[in-house]
Each structure stands twice: as C-alpha cells, then as structure tokens.
Amino acid sequence: MKIVFMGTPEFAVPSLKMLVAEGYDVVAVLTQPDRPQGRKKTHVPTPVKQAALELGLPVLQPERLRRPEAVAELAAYAPDLIVTAAYGQILPKAVLDLPAHGCVNVHGSLLPKYRGGAPIQRCIINGESVTGVTLMYMAEGLDTGDMISRVEVPIEDEDTSGTLFAKLSVAGCELLRQEMPRLAAGRVEAVPQDDAQATYAPNLNREDERIDWNDSSRNIYNRIRGLVPFSGAFTLWNGETFKAWAAVKPESDNGGEAAPGTVLAVSAQGIEVKTGDGTLLLTEVQPAGKKAMSAGDFSRGAAMKPGTVLG
C-alpha cells in the first residue's frame, strides 16, 4: 500500500518516523514551503521536511495544494492512503478522492471540540483540564470527518502549548500505530461527529496574544502559557511591546484598589501586576528589542517602577 504523508511542524514528525520504522511504504511527503525566519530572513525547512530528507523520502512543497498542477503531481504517486498531521492546508475534494483507503488526519483535540488550526493553544487558553488526539477520516469541511479513534491526555497546570504539543505528538503517533493495521486492510468503521457539540479553534491573531489586565489572574496565566513557546503573550510598556513568557500566582494578594495593569512590585522574584481579581507575578519577560530574560535579570537594570501601568 502506497502512503503519502502530509505534515509540517514537529508535532507530525513522530508519526512520519513511525510509519517508516514500521515498514509502511511512504512514497512521498508533503509539507509547507520553506519560510524566511529571523532577522536575516533565511529560508528554513519545516521539521517534517528535515525528517523526510533524513529518511530519504521525496518531498513536495506546493504553495497551494488546490492548484491543478499540485494535485497532478500528488496523483502521480498513486497513493492508496493519505495520512495528515498538522499539514496546514485544507485538502480539496480532488485530493480527498485520490486514495482508495481514504485520507486520515491526526488531530490534536477531542473532536468535535476544537476544530481548526490552533486546538492545542486554545484549549490551554480556555483553561481546559483534558484534551487528546482524534484519528479521523477527512472530509471537505473543517475537521468534520468521521472519527476512527480517540485518546485523552490530561493538561497539567504547568503545561504550556510547547509541552502539550510534545505530549499530543506522542499520543497521536501511538494512536496511528494502533490503527494502521486496520487502515491498511481497508476503510474501517468510523463514528460521525455530533455537530451540535462542535467548538472551533481558529488560528491565533494579534489580539489573542494581548493581555487584558481586567481579566482574572487565572485567565491571564492560562493565556501566557497557551502562547509559549510560540508568539508569547504581550502587554504595552511605554507604548512598546512587553512580552510575558512565564508567570505564577502570588500566595497573597496585596493589590488593594490599584487599577488593573498597575505594577505593584519589581523584584528578583517577579513583576507583580494587578489583575481584575487579584495579582499575577511575571517571572520571565521580554522588553521590546531584547531577548527573553528572568525577572531577576530584568529587575537589576529595569526602568520599570511600582505604579507603572501596563496596557
């Protein structure tokens, strides 16, 4: 059986490596085009591309999979099964119809909750205590296909999107490993999703990353850890971006009547900021134009003083 694998970030790499290690015939790998990164705008290959090249697999990187020439290039490999994991593009009907055994997706949520491109980040931001991975057949809608199997993964209070990505990546790989013998034998019975229970996890935008100090300490804490290690949550200090990369809830609340966003203390332990229902201690921050640093390093040379209002 010929398999085409589609994926882009590190989340997808264990699944790709597992398919090869288990002896499945991966005939090609599709991933997003190399993108410029850093100040020098150097084009960097995706983690899936790097893994595929190390495995000696052909790599395709269509800018738009919907284009006829991209579909034709894929069709030339005559896949019997397409496996996707965080590929980053919606598969058109022309691609969905190619493989006789269908297209399956390793999705990082317990569908039908958190359909969309940012399920892992948004489940942390929303304060969920459990998430998981769903293996599903792909359909034309956004993560609407029938479900083959699911596995739950608890979200610890210290988890960030980075640690949860790693956990779900492993869980998704193991789920795919378990189901591959059935998928290789033919289409398996799958359960339709209950659309009435669906929630959505669209890709994050700039406003999703901004801290609202009127919110509760818990919600702000969840937002900060939900954006690590990617964009980071930010506020404004002197009109410039000021990022928060880590925080803890202080044991006591001495915020008093201060307005939300007011800096109450700057010390080696952290920057204590008034929130809508208490205070939050920022323990790792990044001023504009500088690298991320601990609160201790920031406090030694900081111009930020108690009474400063972050916005």
Rank of each mutant, 00 (worst) to 15 (best):
P229F: 08
E240S: 15
F165R: 10
A295C: 02
V20N: 14
T131P: 04
A292L: 00
P14M: 10
M180W: 12
R218K: 12
E152L: 00
F234L: 06
A78R: 15
T46C: 09
P260C: 02
I124W: 03
G56W: 10
S267H: 05
I148Y: 05
R210W: 08
L227H: 06
P36S: 08
N238K: 14
S109K: 13
E189I: 00
D215F: 04
S231D: 14
I148H: 07
A246C: 01
E73R: 15
Q178G: 00
D277E: 11
K17P: 05
T131E: 02
A246W: 05
M18S: 11
M147N: 04
D25C: 08
R206S: 14
A72H: 13
G162M: 01
T131H: 10
E240Y: 09
L96R: 12
Y114C: 03
T199L: 06
G301P: 09
A51L: 07
G132M: 05
R218H: 09
G289A: 06
V151T: 13
L164G: 13
G108L: 01
G226Y: 04
K274G: 06
G276P: 11
L98V: 03
D208K: 12
V13W: 09
V83E: 12
G7L: 08
D215Y: 01
I124R: 07
A72N: 14
A86K: 07
A139W: 02
D143M: 06
F242I: 00
I120C: 15
E158H: 14
K243V: 00
T199A: 10
A12D: 14
T31L: 02
R177N: 02
L91T: 09
A85N: 15
G117K: 11
G38P: 01
E10N: 14
P260Q: 03
R182E: 12
P47D: 11
Q178P: 00
I120K: 14
K49T: 04
A139K: 12
G270I: 00
P33R: 09
P45H: 13
A303T: 13
W237C: 06
L227Y: 12
D253P: 04
N238D: 14
V191I: 04
E73W: 04
L96I: 08
P250K: 06
I155W: 12
L280Y: 01
V29E: 15
G108R: 10
A295H: 02
L57T: 09
V104E: 08
I82A: 07
F11R: 13
N222G: 09
T275R: 03
M180N: 07
V130L: 03
T42F: 08
Q50K: 15
G301H: 14
A70T: 04
R182M: 05
V309M: 01
I224K: 03
V59L: 11
T275N: 13
L81P: 15
A72K: 15
V48R: 08
R225V: 00
P79A: 01
L91R: 13
K41M: 10
L204H: 04
D34I: 01
C103N: 07
Q32T: 06
T235F: 05
D97N: 12
D146I: 00
T163S: 15
M18Q: 14
A247K: 09
A196W: 09
L264W: 03
K2P: 15
S169W: 02
E54G: 13
S161M: 12
L65A: 09
Q193I: 00
A166L: 05
V191P: 04
P192E: 09
S294Q: 01
S231W: 07
